[in-house]
Simulated scan of single mutants.
Amino acid sequence: MGALVGLRNLNVSRNKLSGDIPISIGNLRSLESLDFSNNELSGSIPLSLSTLTFLSHLNLSYNNFSGRIPLGHQLQTLNDPSIYEGNNGLCGFPLPIECSDNKTTSQSFALEKGNGPEKYAGAIIGFAVGAWTVYGALLLNKAWRVAYFVFVDNMYDRLYVIVILNWARIMQK
């Protein structure tokens, strides 16, 4: 199922499916609508379901799901409790049933952890080191600095001539 990355709508309701929702459901990045209602699915709702950013319709009602409803991105926008109706073992937002364990904060933190500035720290550091390598070399080596500015001036002159010639052609027509 996880290989169907272009899939937009999946409705397998009322098919007497059993077992767990595969974790690979998170690979369906284009999924907008998902309906697993009225089956015999069990287990917990996979955390990967919350990574489906285009998901606007979800129905997991009348199955045998249990455990905490995953927190995070898209699932928090789907706050209608009827989505999870008929799953007596579920707890957590948006249901009024509180979970007895204290995993709410750790689960949402684990999901959010890779999406802050630390996600881009490597790219930022790499950019800074690369930029200072180039600018440092230009700053310290006069011959390279002169060659660089001569190159930039020549490119500016060429671009200016091309723009002026094309503008003249357009005005003639």
Results as ranks from 00 to 15, higher is better:
G122V: 01
T105D: 13
A131L: 15
L139N: 07
L111D: 02
K103C: 07
K113Y: 15
L111G: 00
L111N: 02
T105M: 12
K119E: 12
P117V: 12
L139A: 08
G114W: 05
Y135W: 13
G130R: 04
L139K: 06
E112W: 11
G126I: 01
I125S: 04
Y120A: 06
A131Q: 04
G114S: 09
T104G: 12
K113H: 14
I124Y: 11
F127W: 10
L138C: 07
K103D: 13
F127S: 06
S108A: 11
A123N: 10
F127C: 06
G126H: 01
N115G: 00
V129M: 12
G122R: 08
L111A: 07
T133S: 12
K113N: 14
G122T: 08
L111C: 02
T105C: 05
S108I: 15
G116C: 03
L138W: 01
L140W: 04
N115Q: 09
E118I: 11
G116R: 03
L138E: 03
Y135H: 05
W132K: 03
A137R: 11
E118D: 09
E118R: 15
G130M: 10
V134P: 02
L138R: 01
A131Y: 12
A131T: 07
K113R: 15
L140H: 04
G116D: 11
K119M: 10
G136H: 04
G122W: 01
T133W: 09
K119N: 06
V129Y: 03
T133C: 11
Y135Q: 05
Y135F: 15
F109V: 10
I124W: 08
A121V: 10
S106F: 05
V134K: 01
K113L: 15
L139C: 02
A128M: 14
Q107F: 01
K103Y: 14
T133M: 12
E118L: 11
S106I: 14
G136F: 02
L138N: 00
W132G: 00
S108D: 02
G122I: 04
K119D: 02
G114D: 08
N115S: 06
T133Q: 05
